[in-house]
Computed example of a mutant assay.
Amino acid sequence: MSRDPKIESPVGPRHVAIIMDGNGRWAQARGRPRLFGHHAGARRVREVVEACPRLGIEYLTIFAFSTENWKRTQVEVAGLMSLFRRYIAKETRALAANNVRVRFIGDRVRLDTKLVELMDALEAQTCGNTGVNLTVALNYGGRDEVARATKRLAQDVAEGKLRPEDVDEETLPKYLDTCVLPDPDLVIRTSGEARISNFLLWQSAYAEYEFIDTLWPDFTAAELERLCRSFGTRERRFGKVPA
């Protein structure tokens, strides 16, 4: 991990979520296959994670693979699944040594057994770490997450564990994949696209957004720092008016 002193950002984001977009276009602009860009993007994750402590970021959530990404070509999907397995196997020791706590969110049912085993092992190996909380959204979709949470909530109501009249906006988050995480303060999307793509729909109700042109493999710790400083200048009122 970087040992640089923490930046002066008392009102910086505690939880940053990133839609890591633009890997394929980055590769194609260089005359390379899309998977070349995904590999470059995976390497970029380490720099961003290592920058978090000095930027005051306690939680980092990254969008690795959406429930809609299965619509891509079989070659690209298979290549991504292979990349995830290799990345986890390669980075496990470094993540554990650098005190990073890793969690995965999303529906694991469709993922292959070997990948799920690696995910489970990485979560178990880092569960006692107290540094950056890295959450990887893998086969994740916001609508799918809410649907799965609602099913679990409905089951508890049916079994008498929860009364219908007790269900409110504080109840559902307890059933979400992110139930142990604070809501994101800042959501960043790279590559110039200005949409949220089904990412953390419930959790980001009051997040600040940054849509930037940088393609993910070109995203740097310096740009993350710039965005954190910009966040610190914003007035977050959460529906209130200034005193």
Rank of each mutant, 00 (worst) to 15 (best):
Asp144Ile: 08
Arg189Met: 11
Ile62Glu: 12
Arg30Trp: 08
Lys240Met: 11
Ile88Asp: 00
Ile212Ala: 07
His15Met: 05
Pro242Glu: 14
Leu111Gly: 07
Glu169Val: 11
Asn99Cys: 06
Arg103Val: 01
Gln155Glu: 15
Gly37Pro: 07
Glu235Arg: 13
Arg32Ser: 08
Thr113Arg: 15
Leu162Trp: 01
Thr150Phe: 12
Val136Gly: 00
Val45Phe: 06
Ala243Leu: 13
Ala29Asn: 15
Phe104Ala: 06
Ala205Asp: 06
Asn69Leu: 11
Phe238Tyr: 14
Tyr59Lys: 04
Ile212Gln: 07
Leu181Asp: 10
Arg30Met: 08
Asp218Arg: 02
Val157Ala: 11
Val45Asp: 00
Arg234Tyr: 08
Tyr59His: 15
Ile18Ser: 04
Val167Trp: 00
Val146Trp: 03
Gly37Val: 02
Asn98His: 13
Arg25Trp: 04
Ala243Thr: 11
Thr150Pro: 00
Pro182Trp: 01
Thr92Met: 13
Leu118Phe: 05
Gln125Thr: 14
Gln28Asn: 13
Ala222Arg: 12
Pro33Asn: 11
Ala137Ile: 06
Gly79Ala: 02
Ser9Lys: 03
Tyr140Pro: 03
Met20Gln: 04
Ala94His: 10
Ala29Trp: 04
Ala89Lys: 12
Arg195Phe: 11
Leu176Met: 13
Leu122Cys: 12
Arg72Val: 08
Val146Gln: 07
Gly160Trp: 09
Asn139Ile: 02
Thr113Leu: 08
Glu235Thr: 13
Leu153Asp: 02
Ile196Asn: 05
Glu235Tyr: 06
Arg34Cys: 06
Ala121Met: 08
Leu122Asp: 03
His38Ser: 02
Lys114Gly: 10
Gly41Glu: 07
Asp112Thr: 06
Thr233Val: 07
Tyr140His: 05
Val109Ile: 10
Leu215Ser: 00
Gly128Lys: 09
Asp177Pro: 05
Val187Arg: 00
Arg110Tyr: 06
Arg189Asn: 10
Arg93Phe: 07
Arg103Phe: 07
Pro33Trp: 09
Arg30Asp: 09
Lys161Thr: 02
Ser230Arg: 15
Tyr175Glu: 06
Glu117Tyr: 06
Thr92Phe: 00
His15Asp: 10
